[in-house]
């Protein structure tokens, strides 16, 4: 049986791992390659690097870290953040990344998803979608409105690390990128990211149902129950988390043993 995946996420800035709350107050937490190797040892199923380096010129530093990390670990490895074009994707893959995640560039130029999937294969194109709930009183004709436990809402796509609203319906966008050849989706809830009150279960579930693509839930893991919830009620195929692992709140092994005991299929090491 296909196991559900636990994926530690490393936010990398200028070659160092950092983590903030709701995309601000960044703190340095260590060397990416060392942390990634440690996570593999603990049983991580994949590792994600999100490059949040502000300057495009400094991204060579990130590619060096990608190479060093890829040479160290033997589990799949995704690089995202600042991927703007085919050359960026080629650079990441030839530095040892297995997949790239695209976000802003895909929204600005959906053809990038189509072109990169046809060149490199769908399996390595992850589309990251930063989404925030927009509550409405009634159904809106051009949006996918869902009845949630907090009332009716649709999800709006945000860009630029959560600073720029687009007016785009996240569920419609997810369906569109599937048609364009995306192999996997990485929705991050802007309502939940870094605040550790749980994932947006309705977002991941709706996205999973709407596309039938593998969905990696991101944003909001604060405890073991949150991860259990998103992999069951939230119908996600994988859970991505940062803070709870970096701070040593739980090891990846602890999370996986807990989930396995509760009946979630897990690869235990």
């Amino acid at each position: 049986m296909l196991a559900k995946r636990i994926i530690p996420c490393l936010d990398v800035m200028n070659g160092q791992v950092v983590k903030g709350v709701q995309f601000v107050n960044l703190k340095v937490e260590g060397d990416p390659a060392e942390l990634a190797a440690d996570y593999e040892e603990q049983g991580a199923d994949e590792v994600v690097f999100l490059d949040i380096t502000a300057s495009h010129e400094k991204r060579d530093t990130t590619l060096e870290v990608v190479k060093r990390t890829a040479d160290t670990i033997s589990i799949p490895f995704t690089v995202g953040g600042g991927i703007r074009n085919i050359t960026d994707i080629q650079n990441a893959l030839s530095s040892g990344a297995d997949k790239v995640s695209v976000n802003t560039a895909a929204v600005n130029n959906p053809k990038l998803v189509e072109a990169s999937a046809s060149i490199f294969g769908s399996q390595c194109i992850v589309v990251a979608i930063d989404a925030k709930r927009v509550y409405v009183d009634d159904y809106v004709s051009d949006k996918t409105v869902v009845e949630t436990c907090n009332g009716k809402c649709w999800w709006e796509v945000y860009l630029m690390g959560g600073r720029q609203p687009t007016g785009i319906d996240a569920l419609a966008w997810a369906k569109q990128v599937k048609e364009l050849g995306a192999g996997e989706l990485l929705p991050t809830s802007m309502d939940c990211d870094g605040v550790q009150t749980g994932y947006d279960l309705e977002l991941t579930r709706e996205m999973s149902k709407a596309t039938n693509l593998p969905v990696i839930a991101s944003g909001g893991a604060g405890n073991l129950e949150h991860i259990f919830d998103v992999l069951t009620v939230g119908e996600a195929d994988a859970a991505l988390a940062a803070s709870i692992f970096h701070r040593g709140q739980y090891s990846v092994g602890e999370v996986k043993r807990y989930l396995s005991e509760k009946g979630v299929p897990m690869r235990l090491v």
């Binding site: 296909l2 196991a3 995946r5 199923d45 192999g183 039938n212 593998p214 195929d237 690869r267």
Partner: peptide, 10 residues
């Protein structure tokens, strides 16, 4: 089943 099959299987 979801395609691609993406992840760890036995």
């Amino acid at each position: 089943v979801k395609t691609p099959q993406m992840g760890w299987n036995t």
